[in-house]
Design a protein around this nucleic acid. Structure first.
Lengths: 147, 147
DNA sequence: GTGCAAGTAATAAAAGAAGTTACATGAAAA
DNA sequence: TTTTCATGTAACTTCTTTTATTACTTGCAC
């Protein structure tokens, strides 16, 4: 199955943007993410609708973060992306007549709901600032390794 | 996204088989699950490889459960199906050179791993017998409602 | 007004699950 | 032993969803 990688994508993009003072163009973001500028605009557009970034056209235009990194959580980004389906596994039929299948659905749904709740809780507990810190930690580790 | 519904399918099938004394044909199972007999064979074949069911050809052949329902968990079935990918969300690139993306992956992976562990734990805690009991409960509820 | 950059619609490509067709294999019944 | 029933399996198609691409419009700055 093809997995939705937009959350991963926007995190990558936002961290790169956070390191820059100037706005970043869709082309620049697309290059560092090895994708297409139109895809970048489409995805970043959702974050703009949520108020997390702004975009400007023309010379020296591009994308800029408009939020305090320590206030922006993965969960908020997940929501901005339209809360895409979390699971690649699901019920065959969501509204079955068969009582057997209804029972199966009920039990599976409850398990999935629990796991999804935990995931979203985790998402809510991680801010962009945390991610930036994780990056800094890794960066220092690399420098140490290299001497 | 197209979700893998085989776990849901086999649970449905197994519960129906449990209610029967005679083996059930792929055609019968396909009909009650509104799918194709070949799909049934393909999926049930994986359960046969795991030793949970047997199949016989020819007259009065078909599929039969070969396991104690109270010993068979959803987790075992998930494994028999080849442990399909649980999440429809994932990293854009699993082995990035970019240190930023590595950091993003690490944080996301840890969140996903936690949620998957919880899901599998839940799967391990539910047996087919539990599901059958859930069905019985619902069946009684319906009868009560109808008077 | 020229160039740069986003906005957007429409379409194609890619991938994987499920469905379908066609035929082989084997067991039981007639 | 021939027919019928049922699984086994390969090959292919369909369906769905994400991602990529193309082509064009809008708007800002130099």
């Amino acid at each position: 199955m093809k997995r939705d990688s937009r959350l991963s994508s926007v995190l990558h993009a936002l961290l790169h943007m956070a390191e820059q003072d100037r706005p970043m163009t869709s082309d620049a973001l697309a290059e560092c993410m090895r994708t297409n500028p139109v895809v970048v605009r489409r995805t970043m557009g959702l974050l703009r609708e949520a108020g997390f970034v702004t975009s400007e056209r023309g010379h020296s235009g591009g994308w800029r973060i408009e939020t305090d990194l320590s206030k922006l959580t993965l969960r908020q980004l997940h929501e901005a992306l339209g809360e895409p389906t979390v699971f690649a596994i699901g019920n065959r039929n969501e509204t079955p007549d068969c009582l057997v299948e209804q029972s199966v659905n009920a039990v599976l749904d409850s398990a999935f709901a629990e796991a999804e709740a935990l995931l979203l809780e985790r998402f809510a507990s991680v801010t962009l600032a945390d991610l930036a810190a994780e990056f800094t930690r890794r960066f220092k580790d690399i420098k140490l390794q290299k001497g």
